[in-house]
Design a binder for these strands. Structure first.
Length: 851
RNA sequence: GCGGGUGUGGCCAAAAUGGCAAAGGCGGCUGGCUUAGAACCAGCAGAUUGGGAGUUCGAAUCUCCCCACCCGCACCA
């Protein structure tokens, strides 16, 4: 009652919290100050901190996933500034890609225009959110000053044999009208069109030799301790390294041979057939003189295609057909039948296997179905001969039987010995196979980086007619023509631009045609974070000095959906740049954080589900501070977050409470704290408040350095504010001195700054604080003030609470025990019983074990 | 099938190393202020932590089994 009166009788300073007023005011000031969020030079004397969020595709609209991602990064960047770091916090645009072409078709707007307008709109939204980006370092991947370096890298890779062209079976998305990399095919569907089945086509395409780095990409994962284990596991699986042996089987009565890949060469004496993929060349050659077989193989291929299109490869039953031909096992000269089977993958290993039913689940099943013999050649070391059920797949503590000269050896030893034997006798070799394939980067699209290659029509010395000639570096960038008719069919749109296609050979000066495919947009995002360190450089992609200062990224933040695609390409690119001598780091990011999804009504927000919440609406209704703070408060950042508008309203209410309190006490809060608060009086209310304050500082500081449970940080701030509210009478009466109030509100504002920067800036100014609030030093907890001087010790009897006794903080075991046993309730409880044992945990509890 | 994650009041969620039957928010309820509502303010109620067993003086926390949901990978030789 006093309170509302004083609130009403208060001055203008007592206005209500109105984010619609204070946020634009601060935004205007921040926008006008280019140096505000600028990183300092290498000589700043401060430790560096590179805080990075994944750059968005400029669709034109920020969504809640972005808001969450950027709220996390922004809180961290501001905190690190307050901790005295030199922070690089950039933002950019992953601006090439198909949506711009689709929009062009739909609205008849050129992709460039559409994209740049979207970027402007989203930049505006980011500024409205108060995100602390250094816009001077902004990178836009669709501009020639950026993509010329894609071209430059491509040339470097070509020189080193890392970029090459080959004809192969590729994934084709009929919707995108372009090929896709393996990583971009999800369950047989396009990563952008989850209902579109990806087809297989034979095309000549450009590839980047990522497999050359397969081993390093794999072993490097072990060094990435700051990455989520989940992501590392996903990448390990994706790379799919597998050690084994390639063994040549001669085809009986023919010159051909079949090379099989096996990880269990030790079981080869148990091989009872050889199985070929339907597409295997030897299968084809058999089919050529066997129409019945040819028919069956065609059927198999057709069935597989149908299954893939139905997205249901698992449902297809394993089946095969005997070719009537035989292969010779080179270890024992045995003739085994050659089959063609639908479950053998043409593009893994050699597309052919030896089938060992006794020691492989799948071979066992297949042999059972077709009555192929099962021959046991491995037994447990200590078990009786032939003991145990088949298939027997263990390798540990197992030995070979019926395996010629290797009989009696352990599996592991035999694998090595038998590989060596094959090598020595010229019919095999130890081999490593990867699931990872080279990265197909050609796209038959317009809106991407032109591949800097031409085809010399007549050819010249060393180049056959139509041969590949790289464009010289001095001719870069190859600029994307502006006037292009975008259509949905008929190959790359660039192919129809005569002025682009027709050129001259840079070597012989004769007629030449330009490559009309463009690069996969994942090329753009593979190295953009290096460009941030030197985004205006027109002489090189970036200066090594600058990159070496800022890299590795100290914290990278983004969605887990990029665990394979973007994050494996980026790691590859980093290693290539290192080998080019441009950087020293082996990995792009020391720490990676993958935030959870934003969910609404139990499902991921999506237009098709109609459950999208617009950030603009939220900001208009509750303000940017409340919106972003809610995104941090509603769940730990790594978990999925259910968007509940009432929750945003709750955060908004909390902020207005902070505003009201700070305004009410702003005069005292504005006083310089002339004497150290540790010398303040000893009133219990003020002590309690100061204790709470310093406990809160400790907690938040800890959370920022470790696990980032911002939800609990914010909850802790709420607790502090609740405690202040509860002590309002004491503050009004002066029982809590003004100096203490000043200490409280000053620190409250500082702690709020990473989460609600607009309000923090406003309150800081009101209190007469100097400079930008997020460049003030982060508060340091005073342990003496945080410590309780008296602690409550629960006393249990057999684990059940009996009472609570108060003892001075730091009391020793004996004191606590004595206090507990002296308590009236305890005495009553113990009547007629025997205390068997007393457990005292100093500072924690007392547990009496009684009978 | 394999790998990873999650399960705490009506809802979102918190609880280093096991230690007061469990923070904070939303929602609900009561009261104040209001012509009334909104907003605001004061206060209240509400959970034996998916199920079961075990270890322990003591378990949301450790172990084992089971259930549910989610996310990766999936005929990889």
């Amino acid at each position: 009652m006093d309170m509302s009166e004083s609130a009403r009788s208060g001055s203008e300073a007592q206005q209500r919290y109105n984010p619609a007023e204070i946020e634009p005011k601060w935004q205007a000031r921040w926008d006008a100050d280019e140096r505000l969020y600028a990183a300092e030079g290498h000589d700043s004397g401060k430790p560096k901190f590179y805080c990075l969020e994944m750059l968005p595709y400029p669709s034109g609209q920020l969504h809640m996933g972005h808001v969450r991602n950027y709220a996390i990064g922004d809180a961290l960047a501001r905190f690190m500034w307050m901790r005295g770091y030199n922070v690089l916090h950039p933002m950019g645009w992953d601006a090439f890609g198909l949506p711009a072409e689709n929009a062009a078709l739909k609205n008849n707007t050129p992709p460039a225009e559409w994209t740049l307008a979207n970027i402007a709109a989203m930049r505006r939204q980011m500024r409205r959110m108060g995100l602390s980006y250094d816009w001077a370092t902004e990178v836009t991947t669709c501009l020639p000053d950026y993509y010329r370096w894609n071209q430059w890298f491509f040339l470097k890779m070509y020189q080193r044999g890392l970029a090459y062209r080959k004809k192969s079976k590729v994934n084709w998305c009929p919707e995108c009208q372009t090929v896709l990399a393996n990583e971009q095919v999800i369950d047989g569907k396009c990563w952008r069109h989850e209902d579109t089945v990806v087809e297989q086509r034979d095309l000549t395409q450009w590839f980047l030799r990522i497999t050359q780095y397969a081993d390093e990409l794999l072993s490097g994962l072990d060094t990435l301790e700051g990455w989520p284990e989940k992501v590392r596991t996903m990448q390990r699986n994706w790379i799919g390294r597998s050690e084994g042996t390639a063994v040549d089987f001669a085809v009986d009565g023919a010159a051909e041979k079949i090379t099989v890949f096996t990880t269990r060469v030790d079981t080869i004496f148990g091989a009872t057939s050889v199985q070929l993929a339907p597409e295997h060349p030897v299968a084809r050659s058999f089919a050529a003189c066997d129409p019945a077989l040819a028919g069956k193989i065609e059927e198999m291929i057709a069935q597989q295609k149908a299954a893939r299109e139905a997205g249901d490869m698992g449902a297809i039953e394993k089946h095969g057909v005997a070719t009537g031909r035989f292969a010779i096992n080179p270890y024992n000269g045995e003739r085994v039948p050659i089959w063609v089977a639908n479950y053998i993958l043409a593009d893994y290993g050699t597309g052919a296997i030896m089938s060992v039913p006794a020691h492989d689940e799948r071979d066992f099943e297949f042999a059972g179905k077709y009555g192929l013999p099962v021959r046991r050649v491995i037994v447990p070391k200590d078990g009786a001969n032939g003991a145990g059920d088949l298939p027997y797949t263990a390798e540990e503590d197992s030995v070979l039987v019926d395996s010629g000269q290797w009989t009696g050896e352990s599996c592991v030893a035999a694998q090595q010995a038998m590989s060596a034997f094959a090598e020595a006798n010229g019919f095999g070799t130890a081999t490593v196979t990867y699931r990872l394939k080279d990265w197909g980067v050609s796209r038959q699209r317009y809106w991407g980086t032109p591949i800097p290659m031409v085809y010399c029509e007549k050819g010249h010395a060393g180049i056959e007619p139509g041969g590949i000639v790289p464009v010289p570096e001095s001719a870069l960038p190859i600029v994307l023509p502006a006037q292009v008719e975008i259509t949905q069919q008929g190959g790359s749109p660039l192919g129809r631009v005569a002025s682009f296609v027709n050129t001259t050979c840079p070597v012989c000066g004769g007629a030449a045609r330009r490559e009309t495919d463009t690069m996969d947009t994942f090329v753009d995002s593979s190295w953009y974070f290096y460009r941030y360190t030197d985004s205006k450089n027109s002489a090189e992609a970036f200066s090594s000095d600058k990159a070496n200062y800022w890299f590795p990224i100290d914290q990278y933040i983004g969605g887990v959906e990029h665990a394979i695609l973007h994050l494996i390409y980026s790691r590859f690119w980093t290693k290539v740049m290192r080998d080019l001598g441009m950087i020293r780091n082996d990995e792009p990011a020391a720490r990676l954080f993958t935030q959870g999804m934003v969910i609404k009504d139990g499902a991921k927000m999506s237009k098709s589900k109609g459950n999208v919440v617009s950030p603009d609406d939220m900001i208009a209704r509750y303000g940017a501070d409340a919106t972003r703070m809610y995104a941090l408060f509603a769940a730990p950042p790594d978990r999925d977050l259910e968007w509940q508008e009432e929750g945003v309203a709750g955060v908004s209410r909390f902020l207005s409470r902070v505003h009201r309190l700070t305004m009410k006490y702003s005069e005292s809060a504005g006083q310089r704290v002339s004497e150290s608060a540790t010398n303040a009086g000893t009133g219990s209310a003020e002590q309690a408040l100061l204790r709470k304050l310093h406990q809160t500082i400790t907690k938040i500081t800890m959370d920022f350095s470790g696990r980032w449970h911002f939800n609990t940080c914010i909850a802790a701030i709420m607790e502090l504010v609740n405690a202040i509210v509860a002590s309002e009478p004491q503050m009004d009466s002066g029982e809590v001195p003004a100096a203490v109030a000043a200490e409280l509100f000053r620190n409250l504002t500082l702690m709020l700054a990473p989460f609600a920067p607009f309000l923090a800036a406003e309150l800081w100014e009101t209190m007469g604080g100097e400079g930008a609030v997020f460049r003030v030093s982060w508060p340091v907890a005073d342990e003496g003030l945080a410590r309780e001087n008296e602690v409550e010790i629960p006393v249990q009897s057999n684990g059940k609470l009996v009472t609570v006794v108060k003892v001075p903080a730091g009391s020793d075991e004996a004191t606590i025990k004595a206090a507990a046993l002296a308590d009236a309730k305890v005495v009553a409880r113990l009547e007629g019983k025997t205390v068997v044992k007393v457990i005292v945990v100093p500072g924690k509890l007392v547990n009496l074990v009684v009978k």
